[in-house]
Design a binder for these strands. Structure first.
Length: 204
DNA sequence: TAGGTGATCTTG
DNA sequence: AAGATCACCTAT
């Protein structure tokens, strides 16, 4: 039996709630699962960042423009927003909120749960090391997520999330988001969340 | 600390 | 049409 089979898949009501910051916190401890070409990999989410389409210059959709890249963020919550960053890295985001309200949560780090051998192979690594899934670019590579998955429903059978034991507020640390200095004062919003003391987060 | 890499956005 | 920018990662 797989470790996550005792859990249950998050449904669309989880993603369609209106408070993206709350959802970013709730996502800690949930398990992200991919089944690609019939092969399953899974990891527990240990670090996230919230992005709001309104009043947040760090969000790609904050100007309300629906481009080929930002389009999915305006769709109803529960879909994958994957984009290419710095020409190299595929970053995986979870779209939230109702149609027309463009919020998303970036998944920044995972603790490997299943399919470690396949993750290592995708990463070109020999041995298990924190670098396997600590960081938004590397975790997407380990899980096999790339821009072909743009717009996929997270209630479907390719990429989805499983519930898990919740993380108590005492065990969650909030801090400023990483790499968003261009956003001015919005860069100071404490919208990065991670599980305290967890060895798999992307930065200390 | 610097450089790679390509989509996206801004400027002229 | 060209240049700047960018939710990163790896190796010195």
């Amino acid at each position: 039996m797989r470790k996550f089979e005792a859990m249950s898949r998050l449904d669309r009501n989880f993603y369609r709630r209106g408070d993206v910051v709350e959802i970013a916190r709730d996502l800690l401890g949930k398990t992200l699962v991919t089944r690609i070409d019939g092969r399953v990999t899974a990891g527990k989410i240990v670090e996230t960042e919230a992005y709001s389409g309104r009043n947040d210059r760090a969000c790609h959709a904050h100007l309300q423009r629906r481009t080929r890249r930002t389009r999915v963020m305006f769709e109803e919550g529960g879909k994958a927003y994957v984009y290419l960053c710095y020409g190299i890295h595929h970053l995986f985001n979870i779209v939230t909120n109702r149609e027309g309200l463009a919020d998303a949560v970036l998944v920044r780090a995972l603790e490997p749960v299943e399919g470690v051998d396949l993750m290592l192979k995708r990463r070109g690594m020999e041995k298990l090391h924190k670098r396997l899934t600590a960081g938004p670019g590397v975790l997407s590579q380990a899980m096999g997520i790339h821009t072909d998955h743009y717009g996929l429903s997270l209630v479907d059978d390719h990429i989805w999330l499983e519930s898990g034991a919740g993380i108590s507020n005492d065990d969650i640390h909030a801090s400023a988001r990483i790499g968003v200095d261009y956003a001015g004062e919005d860069a100071l919003k404490p919208w990065r969340f991670y599980i305290k003391e967890n060895p798999w987060i992307s930065r200390r």
